[in-house]
Amino acid sequence: MRATVMYGPKVVQLESVPDPVIQEPTDAIIRVLVSCICGSDLWPYRGFDAIPEGGRPMGHEAVGVVEEVGSEVRTLKPGDVVLMPFAISDGNCEFCREGLTTACAHLQFFGAPGIGGAQAEAVRVPFADGTLYKVPARESGRALLPHLLTLTDVMGTGHHAAVTARVEPGKVVAVIGDGAVGLCGVLAARRLGAERIILLGHHPDRLELGRIFGTTDVVMERGEAAVERVRELTGFGVHSVLECVGTEEAVDMAVQIARPGGAIGRVGVPHHAGIPATTTFYKNVIVAGGPAPTRAYMPELLPDVLEGRMEPGRVFDLRLPLEQVAEGYRAMDERRAIKVLLEP
Rank of each mutant, 00 (worst) to 15 (best):
R266Y: 06
R266D: 03
R266W: 10
V267W: 00
V267M: 00
V267A: 00
G268D: 00
G268M: 00
G268K: 00
G268Q: 00
G268C: 01
G268A: 01
V269E: 02
V269A: 08
V269N: 04
V269I: 13
P270F: 03
P270L: 02
P270S: 01
H271E: 07
H271W: 02
H271T: 03
H271V: 04
H272R: 09
H272Y: 02
H272T: 09
H272D: 05
H272V: 11
H272N: 10
H272L: 10
A273I: 09
G274L: 15
G274W: 03
G274M: 09
G274T: 12
G274I: 15
I275S: 01
I275G: 00
I275W: 03
P276A: 10
P276Y: 04
A277E: 11
A277N: 11
A277G: 08
A277L: 15
A277T: 12
T278D: 14
T278S: 12
T279C: 11
T280K: 06
F281I: 01
F281L: 10
F281P: 02
Y282R: 14
Y282D: 13
K283H: 13
K283D: 06
K283A: 12
K283V: 01
K283P: 00
K283T: 02
N284H: 07
N284Q: 12
N284W: 02
N284Y: 02
V285I: 12
V285D: 05
V285S: 07
V285N: 00
V285C: 11
I286M: 12
I286F: 09
I286Q: 07
V287D: 01
V287Y: 01
V287S: 01
A288L: 11
A288E: 11
G289P: 02
G289S: 04
G290N: 08
P291T: 10
A292K: 07
A292G: 05
A292R: 01
A292N: 06
P293E: 09
P293N: 06
P293L: 12
P293R: 07
P293M: 09
T294R: 06
T294F: 05
R295M: 08
R295S: 03
A296G: 02
A296P: 03
A296S: 08
A296M: 11
Y297M: 07
Y297F: 13
Y297A: 06
M298R: 03
M298D: 04
M298G: 02
M298I: 13
P299S: 15
P299E: 13
E300I: 13
E300T: 15
E300D: 13
L301G: 06
L301S: 11
L301W: 14
L301E: 10
L302E: 05
L302P: 01
L302Y: 04
P303M: 08
P303R: 08
D304N: 15
D304V: 13
D304T: 13
D304G: 15
V305A: 07
V305P: 01
L306I: 13
L306M: 11
L306T: 05
E307M: 14
G308T: 02
G308Y: 12
R309G: 06
R309D: 06
R309K: 09
R309I: 09
M310I: 15
M310N: 07
M310F: 14
M310R: 08
